[in-house]
Structures are given as C-alpha cells and as structure tokens.
C-alpha cells in the first residue's frame, strides 16, 4: 500500500490525495509536522528526501519525491482509463510535461506568497505575487481560448489530465497569499470544473462546488 508523507495544509500533498481519491487508490498517511515543527527537515525525512520537501510517497519500497513526479507515477501505474497520463499519446504527454513545469512555477510564486502570509516565511512576497499574476494571466488566456474551441481542460483532450491536478491547488489557494483571482474569470470557471470531477475532495481553503446543472 502507498504511504503518503503528508502535511494537511500543503497544496502539493493535497494534489496527491486528490488524484488518489479520484483514482480510488487506497493509501495511508504519515502526518509530518511541517509547521511549526519543521519535521520535513528532520534526519528521518531527509533520508527519504534529501531536498527536505514534501510530499514523499513510499509504494511498497519505491520511494518518490516531488508532487509532479508522483502524479506521473500514480496516473501511469493506477489509472485504468489511461486518461490522466496517456502513455500512448506523445503530443499530449509533451503538453502535460509543459504544464507540470508550469505548476512548479505556480508553487514558486503563489505558494511562496501563501507561505509568507500564512506560515511567516521570510521572502519577497511582492515579487512572488507579481510572478503569480504573470502566470495566472497566461493560464487564464490559455483556458479562455480553449473554451472558444470547446476545450474544458488545460491540455488538448476532452478529459482532465494530471496537469489540471498539478496546477489546481495553489491556484485555488492563491488568496491565502494575497493574490486575487478576480481578473481571471476563465481560471475561476475551470476551478468549478475540476471540483466537479468525480472523486473530488477538498482541503482547508478549497471549497466544494455545487452540482452541475442537469442537461
């Protein structure tokens, strides 16, 4: 069984819980006192991830770090539909990889601003917020033009992929870092769609959507 080294308030841990919930994968959690205990920097955790970061999973001895990498692994291994990480579609895989890297950019900006505001990290919060707005403008434009051609998700497919899961948490938590999403209506609509994926679960700060309208 999968063991997730987890911090409840981490968006990067949440995205793994979210995908595992959607895929119906069973897992157990080892809570890590990320704040204020800084347990992710403890000797035990550094042995699992020398970068001193969460999340980490242990799947029957396979130890993996990095949220995006773990999303790739979980989808490739446990998604029977093959939709979340379509191994036989190179163009889509390339696109997914591109947006997984984009998700890292969101972590470096929007998540950093949230760490500053919520957990008192000492960093240049204005730069972090400006960086997040720059990324959000790109994402909003991308999603808006996608909608014009009937595409609901980040990548060119008629179903969500792990790129949606990778980008979702820290976009939706941005206001905890003082980053309003008011100017990104296409992002806000996409957020509703992700929340309506069967198996969706919430975390603190990410609220559920109501049911979609019956067609």
């Amino acid at each position: 069984m999968i063991t997730l080294y987890d911090f409840e308030l981490s968006g990067n841990c949440y995205k793994l819980r979210l995908l595992m919930s959607i895929l119906g994968v069973e897992y157990k959690i080892v809570p890590v006192d990320f704040y204020p205990g800084r347990e992710h920097k403890s000797a035990t955790l550094l042995k699992l991830n020398p970068l001193g970061q969460l999340p980490i999973i242990d799947d029957d001895g396979l130890i993996l770090r990095d949220a995006q990498a773990i999303l790739v692994y979980l989808a490739a291994r446990y998604d029977a539909s093959g939709n979340w990480y379509p191994r036989d579609n190179p163009a889509l895989l390339g696109e997914i990889g591109q947006w997984l890297a984009f998700a890292d950019g969101i972590t470096a900006t929007a998540s950093a601003a949230r760490l500053h505001d919520g957990l008192f990290y000492d960093l240049d919060v204005e730069a972090a917020r400006a960086g997040a707005h720059r990324l959000f403008r790109i994402l909003d434009e991308h999603l808006w033009f996608g909608q014009q051609v009937g595409r609901d998700w980040i990548c060119a497919a008629d179903h969500p992929t792990i790129s949606d899961i990778a980008c979702f948490p820290y976009v939706l938590l941005s206001e905890e870092g003082g980053i309003s999403r008011q100017d990104y209506p296409a992002i806000r609509r996409w957020g509703d769609r992700v929340k309506r994926v069967p198996g969706f679960i919430v975390m603190s700060g990410i609220f559920p959507a109501g049911p979609a309208r019956a067609i």
Binding site: P185, R188, R189, D192, A209, G210, A212, R213
Partner: peptide, 13 residues
C-alpha cells in the same frame, strides 16, 4: 461581465 462568463452554476466575481 461577458455573457459567456456566466455559465449555469457558476458565481462570477
């Protein structure tokens, strides 16, 4: 807002 900003069951800011 634009009309397309208001799909059903969405709340626009």
């Amino acid at each position: 807002a634009a009309s397309h900003d208001l799909p059903f069951r969405h709340v626009f800011h």
